[in-house]
Design a protein around this nucleic acid. Structure first.
Lengths: 203, 203
DNA sequence: GTCTATACTAGGATAGAC
DNA sequence: GTCTATCCTAGTATAGAC
């Protein structure tokens, strides 16, 4: 494997998304640059433009990828969700904790997955990914509100706003809990989620 | 008043901070540039550097200003706080709602006021401003936890994380509540705060 | 205290060779 | 499909005139 000569290996597009996610995780969304991603993928500055028309398209691809990962984790870490005998309060809390941890670690969350500026009028892929990621928490919420969709949406919205706030403030190094780890964030988020779920349940 | 000739009027330093805040409110922190602020203040690109050594110093000044404004609003909109007969649950909720509204509108909040990267080792001004801004919510929380400082801090931390999440997700145009206004955000935040305060109260 | 001018950096994006 | 080369824009920061 020569170190910069010739072409890139198999799938540059995927490698670019991967490197974009890594860069965002390290330095935040604002610091994402096509040039730096190209450097990390060991390709020239022009190469990414064969796969993405511009920076925003790369960012969108990263958001879609993040949404998929998040969906997978929801399903992996809450496989009991919705099953008879499971506690929907814990189910919702589990998704919130997973979200907080993911967002804190990766610097990418609903702010990007649902970003108005990122979706064109017909961005089916990102729209679908967004819908899919909301499904597990929404299912948990629905069993708390006895099928009341509006109440469930409010509950999910509040719960994930709290999760998002914990994640972003932690990322910024908020001094209130300077010594906190990602795990602490997840625990705090779960506690808040449980409180909100208990208060919001109508069953 | 000639339109670009001669000097600036009285207090350029203050005008720069003002314009920096306006720019952040419009386009977010990432888009803050010394050059654009200079343009808006009708001065040359070099002028700001007489007052601030670099971009970060300008941003820090904006954060300090925001903290002062926030402190003032806390005191203005919750003057009854701590007084006998006031409900500390409502007091805390009121501060959270004020915070959410301020942050949603201005794009600047605890993420900057307490940003690790923004404070030098001896940044007394920002440190003091941060302490002052935490005082009103902390006082409300303390009367809920019967003076237990640790519990009060946890309560404030959770409450304001939720407020921050609501504000930032709203700013990003999160599609869940696309039609929401700042007022809706404030109402939602207050509701969450009340739930958390009620659950966290030990008195 | 502000201006003008300038050096420098970095990124976005495109064109044409291979 | 990737490279090299290049253009353009925009921002940071400094120097020296007034």
């Amino acid at each position: 494997m020569p170190k910069r000569a010739g072409y890139h290996h198999g799938d540059l597009k995927a490698a670019l998304v991967e490197n974009a996610l890594a860069l965002i995780a390290e330095r935040g969304v604002a610091a994402l640059s096509v040039a730096e991603v190209a450097r990390r993928a060991q390709v020239s500055g022009g190469a990414p433009y064969r796969h993405f028309p511009n920076r925003q398209a790369l960012l969108r691809a990263a958001a879609v990828d993040a949404a998929h990962t998040l969906t997978t984790r929801f399903e992996a870490e809450c496989p009991w969700s919705g099953k008879p005998g499971s506690d929907p309060v814990n189910d919702l809390a589990a998704t919130a904790a997973v979200y907080a941890k993911f967002t804190a670690e990766n610097g990418i969350g609903f702010d990007l997955i649902f970003a108005a500026e990122l979706r064109g009028q017909d961005d089916q892929e990102l729209t679908d990914a967004g819908r899919a990621v909301m499904d597990p928490p929404l299912r948990a919420a629905l069993s708390l509100t006895d099928g009341d969709a509006k109440a469930a949406l409010t509950l999910v919205s509040r719960t994930f706003a709290a999760a998002h706030g914990h994640a972003t403030l932690w990322r910024g190094g908020l001094y209130l809990d300077r010594a906190a780890t990602v795990e602490d964030i997840a625990v705090e988020t779960a506690a808040v989620a449980r409180t909100l779920a208990t208060a919001g349940r109508t069953t």
